[in-house]
C-alpha cells in the first residue's frame, strides 16, 4: 500500500503526516515488531523500518548504536521483511529505509518482489540518488512500490528537479547538512529547502522533512510548512533508554508518538 493514502488523509485533515522510524531487529526481531506496532497505534501515520547495515554513513551515534545492536543480535534481511509484513498487516503504510548494498546483494528485483509480497509500500534510499538508482526505479515500477529519494540543502535546483520527478510516495527533505540525530533547535535550512522543493515537485508529491526532530514543538514547527514530519533517532532513544525493559520502551515510544502526533496537528 502506497504511503500516499496516509498523506492524502493527513492533508484532508489539514495537517502534516507523522512518519516514525525504527530499525528492524532492535532490540530484537519480536520486540521491534511490538514497539513499531505501538508507534503506529499511538499516532504514526507512516512507518519506516530501517534495515541494519554495517556501514551506515548517514547515521549519527544513536541510530548507529541501534543498528549495531540489531546486527550483533543476528538480524537478517529476511527478518526485516518479516517485520514489514507484521507491521503492514496492522494497516499502516510501511516503508523500508536501507543503504543500497543489502538490496543489491539480495537481488534488486527479488527484493522488490518480496517487499511487495510482504505488504511493504516501498523504499527510502539514503545512499542512492535517481541518477545511480535506475535498477531500483525499474524494479519499484514493476512491483508498484514507492521510491523515496532525498533532497538536501546543498542540492542544486537541477538535482531537486531530477529527484522529485523520480520520487513516488513522498520526497524526503533533509533539514540539516549532517547525519541523523536529535538536535536542540530545528534547522533554518529546512523551510527554504521545502519551498524550493515544492517549486519543482509534481503537485501530488508530498514533501516530508527529517533529521533532528525529537519533540512535539519541533514537530509543530516543521508541520507548519511541510507535508510530513519524520522522526527517527528520538524513537530509537526511547528504546535505548530502556534496556531489557520492553514495557518501559513501549510506553516511552507511545508517549513520544502521541506528543508528536499532537505536534503535527498544531503545526
Amino acid at each position: 500500500m502506497s504511503v500516499s493514502t496516509a498523506f492524502d488523509k493527513a492533508r484532508a485533515e489539514g495537517r502534516a503526516a507523522l512518519v516514525g522510524y525504527l530499525p528492524a531487529g532492535f532490540p530484537d526481531v519480536e520486540g521491534g515488531i511490538e514497539i513499531i506496532t505501538a508507534m503506529a497505534e499511538a499516532g504514526c501515520d507512516v512507518i519506516e523500518i530501517g534495515l541494519p547495515y554495517s556501514d551506515p554513513v548517514m547515521d549519527g551515534p544513536t541510530i548507529q548504536a541501534a543498528a549495531q545492536q540489531a546486527l550483533d543480535g543476528g538480524v537478517r534481511t529476511r527478518d526485516v521483511l518479516r517485520t514489514v509484513e507484521a507491521v503492514a498487516a496492522t494497516g499502516v503504510p510501511t516503508l523500508v529505509m536501507t543503504y543500497w548494498n543489502p538490496v543489491e546483494r539480495y537481488g534488486v528485483d527479488r527484493f522488490a518482489a518480496d517487499l511487495a509480497a510482504a505488504g511493504g509500500a516501498g523504499l527510502i534510499t539514503p545512499d542512492i540518488t535517481p541518477d545511480y538508482g535506475q535498477a531500483w526505479s525499474a524494479a519499484a515500477d514493476a512491483h508498484g512500490l514507492d521510491k523515496v529519494f532525498l533532497v538536501a540543502p546543498s542540492s542544486t535546483d537541477e538535482r531537486i528537479e531530477l529527484t522529485t520527478s523520480a520520487s513516488r510516495g513522498f520526497v524526503y527533505a533533509t533539514a540539516v547538512m549532517g547525519v541523523t540525530g536529535a538536535r536542540e533547535a530545528t534547522s533554518d535550512l529546512a523551510g527554504p529547502l521545502v519551498e524550493r522543493t515544492r517549486r519543482f515537485a509534481p503537485d501530488d508529491l508530498p514533501v516530508a522533512v527529517g533529521l533532528g526532530v525529537s519533540n512535539g514543538d519541533q514537530a509543530a514547527a516543521v508541520a507548519s510548512y511541510a507535508d510530513g514530519v519524520i522522526v527517527g533517532s528520538a524513537f530509537v532513544r526511547c528504546v535505548l533508554d530502556h534496556p531489557g525493559d520492553r514495557p518501559g520502551a513501549v510506553a516511552a515510544v507511545r508517549a513520544l508518538a502521541a506528543e508528536l502526533a499532537d505536534g503535527v496537528r498544531r503545526g
Binding site: V57, M58, W100, P126, D127, I128, T129, D131, Y132, F149, L150, V151, A152, P153, S154, S155, T156, R159, T163, T174, M177
Partner: peptide
C-alpha cells in the same frame, strides 16, 4: 557514485 544527495553537489 552511490552517495547521499547532500554530497552530490
Amino acid at each position: 557514485k552511490f552517495m547521499p544527495e547532500a554530497l552530490m553537489r
